[in-house]
Amino acid sequence: MTLPVGRGFRMPAEWEPHRGTWLAWPHRRSDWPGKFAPIPWVYGEIARTLARHENVNVLVRDAEQRAAARKVLVAVGADRERVRFYKCPNDRSWVRDSGPIFVTAAGGERAVLDWHFNAWAKYPDWTRDDKIPAVVAADRGLPSWQPRFRNWRVVLEGGSIDVNGQGLMLTTEECLLSTVQQRNPPFDRADYEQVFADYLGVKKVLWLDRGVVGDDTHGHVDDLARFVNARTVVAVAEANEADENYQPLRDNLDRLAAMTDLDGRRLDVVTLPMPAPIVFRGTRLPASYANFYIANGVVIVPTFNDPADRVALGTLADLFPDREVVGIHCVDLVWGLGTLHCMTQQEPV
């Protein structure tokens, strides 16, 4: 079988033009124990904001959930012409990790990568989520691959990687190489790099160390550092030396400062602040401004009722002068241990 790279496929950067965004409407109350009531309204606000700029594709479990979601979207004034529902039973609503990753080729071809999903190697219920990419590929009439390496079906979550669309990828050792929540037990660094080259067109992997405190995924990079153009990375930094995030984030910034692109040039690194710790029911939550999402004409950014909100919004507005930068209140959403990037998945044109 010809691998995607052999047919000229690559994973586009998030800022490249979208056909739309995929969401999975929230239903799992245990992901937000005692705080589920506001979550559909947060999703409604996200869908309303995105639908001003691109189509929004919403996965729902059944007709009852579709009706409930439609009520929310009508109430918040979302453009219903740009919202389409798809019946697709699912376990959780973190479609960044369970949904399809699209790849494109220079001639306009598109395909879907159907990575294996096993709920972050942590939870037992994942079989419905694991079927989402196949459902989407069938609806779009697109070819798909189930990535394999040495007869192993590869586990990968979209939040564990970030690409610039031109051969560079960011990821973390904590997520992919640790024996904690180990996704692919046979794999080492070289194995992952070969998989990323074969299926995503990646030529160089930039390995960071650890993710932010409270991250249920054990080190996803999308709470940590993100490409905003081909040579610029934004990364979160903690100013308080007494905070447990301070040293790990400092170590990652030191690594980024020494990293280069495919031509050997140092990357441009811009820092984002961290909000003050958000603790709910004794749990430190993974609140991070790096969990923004880039759509056509807009960047949506998590905000946390914190003075650093305006710094983060201003920094990203400077980096995306051709897009709106819109803050979305995420103090409730982050109780589910993820925010805006975790719940969205782009579909490139």
Rank of each mutant, 00 (worst) to 15 (best):
M1V: 11
L3Q: 06
R7Q: 15
R10I: 15
M11G: 02
G20K: 01
G20I: 02
L23W: 03
W25I: 07
H27P: 08
P33R: 07
F36L: 04
P38G: 09
A69W: 07
K71T: 14
E81P: 09
E81D: 14
N90H: 12
S93K: 00
W94K: 06
V95D: 13
I101W: 00
A105D: 09
A111Y: 05
L113D: 08
N118P: 11
P124M: 11
D125W: 15
R128N: 13
D130Y: 00
D130L: 07
Q146L: 10
N151G: 13
W152L: 12
G158M: 02
Q166W: 07
T171I: 04
T172L: 13
E174H: 04
R183Q: 12
V202P: 02
K204I: 02
L206H: 02
V221H: 09
V221C: 06
D223Q: 13
A230I: 08
A235K: 02
V236T: 01
A257P: 09
D263S: 05
L267F: 10
T271E: 13
L272T: 03
L272S: 01
P273T: 10
P277G: 01
V279S: 05
S288A: 12
A290L: 13
N296W: 07
V299R: 00
V301P: 04
P307Y: 11
P307C: 12
V311Y: 01
L313W: 02
E324L: 11
E324P: 03
Q345Y: 08
Q346R: 12
